[in-house]
Nucleic acid binder design. Structure first.
Lengths: 245, 245
DNA sequence: ACGACAGGTTGACCGTCATCAACGAAAACG
DNA sequence: CGTTTTCGTTGATGACGGTCAACCTGTCGT
């Protein structure tokens, strides 16, 4: 199983020409000229305060968003009000892909902290993708990667127990922080226990208990939202050999 | 929540020029000329016997597959051997999207019955998508639709109880059969109880029991793999008002 | 700076579904 | 065509995580 995203880009909190439009072009080594053209894509930027929506479910889709700073959650809701977090996104990741299908967003994207996102008008992206082959290829990879990520989550929700889910979640977060040049050992959770639980198909009490349990076992240190991984290997072992509990 | 795919195409068991390359072009109304060009995409066809793999996990990705006849499941496996079904696909649907991301498949696609698939070489598709705008747009929609579908499954796995999951599953199947011109009321399951359970995050015994329970309640008739929906509305109600159990 | 409230922890109890097991029926095989 | 194997059903039991509740701590807003 692999909740880990591919090892991506470093230094992301920089100017667009530096950050290379996030995951959209870095890995493919576009020409300088192409990179310059891609910058045309970026229209406005949007700053969001904590809890503000970048877009809401059912709103018309017209743009993707590259997270420039901060972090987000995406949530989907049932008619009866039940809500589920379908993902947490951080710097450099792309939001809004769910809207392409029907022209309306099917999830809402909510800032977990004060954040900033670059607006990528979708019509422009499609046009440019036709001209720059590398951009098209990379965009398809981003879409496919999201499909793969969600399959990992399905696996997690379908076959793993609470401990395993939490372990996988923490390791995934660590991996993504590390990929961004932050510590992969010590980090701060941007989301609440309830949001974690929603994402992992658990109740907040179970999340809290399991974290405490990990701490007793010496696997991690928890202090409110601050997490420190103390024994990555055993944490990883939890996922692979769940029955040895 | 919406496990239902958009109402798509009818008459699919026909020649390529008739079936309009499945979900790839029908909804967008391409010109006749474009449709003709798209037919170039189809290389060989592959016939598969029941239980045969269309592609295996970790195999190199080079093509997508449009299901021409029959049906498939996609499965993902953990190192420890646990396996999960991530989807069931039927005529007209596209397989292989998971491979675009890394160039290797992350799931295996297994025929649930004797089946046939059209091979769409991916390099050709990318090239043609640059030339035919409608094709590019449609392909993006297909990718996005898969993202949305998986989000529905995450919701199902994360928040629903066994009864609700089964009800959602049956209604989704019915909807897809109907969209293909078959009966949406009476149909034959192509998969085993174990495969259903794996997809829904349940054990096969629970699937069996829940189906029996639905039958006692007069919601459906079950006879081995044959299903008949007797009260769609109450079935639908199960999903929306789970607490009234 | 203070107070209110959201967020987090822990405990006791209970329900849903997993597990183990036995049996029966259909389908695949030679 | 009969045998073997896969598939499905049903029952008894128990564990994992949900639920309800009380309490504590930190954070946010004024």
């Amino acid at each position: 199983m692999d909740l880990q995203l591919p090892p991506t880009l470093r230094q992301l909190r920089v100017a667009c020409s530096q950050c290379n439009l996030m995951e959209l072009c870095l890995p493919v080594g576009l020409s300088e000229e192409d990179v310059a053209r891609i910058e045309e894509l970026i229209g406005t930027r949007r700053k969001l305060k904590r809890h503000q929506a970048l877009y809401e479910v059912r709103s018309p889709f017209q743009a993707l968003y590259a997270i420039r700073a901060g972090s987000f959650k995406t949530t989907i809701v049932l008619e009866d009000g039940r809500e589920q977090v379908t993902g947490f996104q951080m710097t450099g990741e792309l939001l809004g892909l769910d809207g392409i299908s029907t022209g309306q967003h099917v999830v809402s994207a909510i800032a977990l902290e004060d954040s900033e996102a670059c607006v990528i008008e979708y019509a422009r992206l499609e046009a440019l993708a036709r001209e720059i082959q590398g951009l098209q290829a990379q965009f398809h990879k981003v879409l496919s990667r999201e499909i793969v990520r969600e399959q990992s989550v399905m696996m997690l929700l379908g076959t793993m127990r609470a401990e395993e889910r939490l372990a996988a979640f923490l390791l995934n977060l660590a991996q993504r922080f590390a990929a961004r040049g932050f510590s992969g050992t010590e980090f701060r959770l941007r989301m609440t226990r309830e949001e974690i639980g929603s994402y992992l198909g658990l109740k907040l009490e179970t999340v809290s208990r399991t974290l405490s349990h990990f701490q007793e076992e010496g696997l991690i240190e928890v202090q409110h939202k601050n997490i420190r991984l103390r024994d990555r290997e055993r944490l990883r072992g939890l996922i692979q050999a769940p029955l040895s509990h």
